[in-house]
Design a protein around this nucleic acid. Sequence first.
DNA 1: GGGTAAATACTGACGGGTCAGTTTTCAACC
DNA 2: GGTTGAAAACTGACCCGTCAGTATTTACCC
Lengths: 192, 192
Amino acid sequence: MQRLDPAKRQEILDAAARLFAARPFHEVRLDDVAAEARIGKGTIYLYFEDKEGLYLSLIREGMSRLVNAVEAQMENPCADVWDRLAAAVEGLIGFASRFPDLFRVMRSGALTADDPELQRSRRELSGLIERAIRDGNEAGQTADPWPELTTQFVLSFVRGAVLYPPEGLTAATLRHHLMVVLRRGIAKEASA
Amino acid sequence: MQRLDPAKRQEILDAAARLFAARPFHEVRLDDVAAEARIGKGTIYLYFEDKEGLYLSLIREGMSRLVNAVEAQMENPCADVWDRLAAAVEGLIGFASRFPDLFRVMRSGALTADDPELQRSRRELSGLIERAIRDGNEAGQTADPWPELTTQFVLSFVRGAVLYPPEGLTAATLRHHLMVVLRRGIAKEASA
DNA sequence: GGGTAAATACTGACGGGTCAGTTTTCAACC
DNA sequence: GGTTGAAAACTGACCCGTCAGTATTTACCC
């Protein structure tokens, strides 16, 4: 299963991302995916179990890439808490800008509730942000009674802004505004 | 089409909400909806155009109820800006708690991108919150350069918390935490 | 290197199951 | 008995997944 051409596999995933981003699961025909990837339909089944397997692989691998991206941005755990949070946000938004289709599919959240691998990835991603906030609490830089909630807030915020972007929103503005609100929202001293 | 028994119509919608909340659109069988509502499948077609029509009606009417609920909470436009925002949040969370299934379906956001009526409702809902913030800006109580983004933040936050609730989260805690972050995040003076 | 055999990769027409939607039958009420 | 609303039975379009067949790549030998 793994000795087939990984580049082709990726092409199929890319094609699938484009189509799944544009329409819901049940409106995407595997014939269309095949056409989009310029291969025969049967080839899909050499690389993936079935339609749902393709969809899950897309999201699983996307999620894992996202976690890596955010982890990479946050690399230095000794850094200032705000820097780490800013890095996490940067990683999230960067990923969303670089892979808009994939991000849409990942965040549309259909069909993915009960996949254990995905749950793990999700927890991992949340954990990265949450840990930064908890460290901030301990270090006295932040005073957040609900780090999980705030984490959820950061993720949801990016999701909302990317899925339903207000007119003329740039990635930079989004990042900046999010950080400003976050800073003021959970900083220990109630000052900007 | 509308003179049939409205109570039965609502029962169908309720049954549909339960099923659509539990599985994605394409995994919900109309036979199951009929069974859940204790009616024959054909009856569905007396009240709704087709499967998608049922789904859209569910979300359209839910959205309209949500807008009304939030509007009702905010009733007095002369009230303090923070009171108005708190009311909006209260309306949102109250709705989500009272109709969890419906809220899940509405916020899962599949299949609903390009319905004009829904777009209108969404804008209306956003508008309520946005207007409060803009009024706050004018009154000098808030200083928010991106009211649309902040609105998105409020909506996303509630969505995220309700769809993926952290362990042991109550509606009251959610409301409180959201308001605290929001207050500190956009208040004119940078004080809590 | 070129000829050929084997392995591997790919294709797309087709079968068949599923389920949305329709038709028929039944029931109730006036 | 006619009308109206509900249930049950039915139909067939649609689309997933298969697989028999084709193409391409690799391996091996002279």
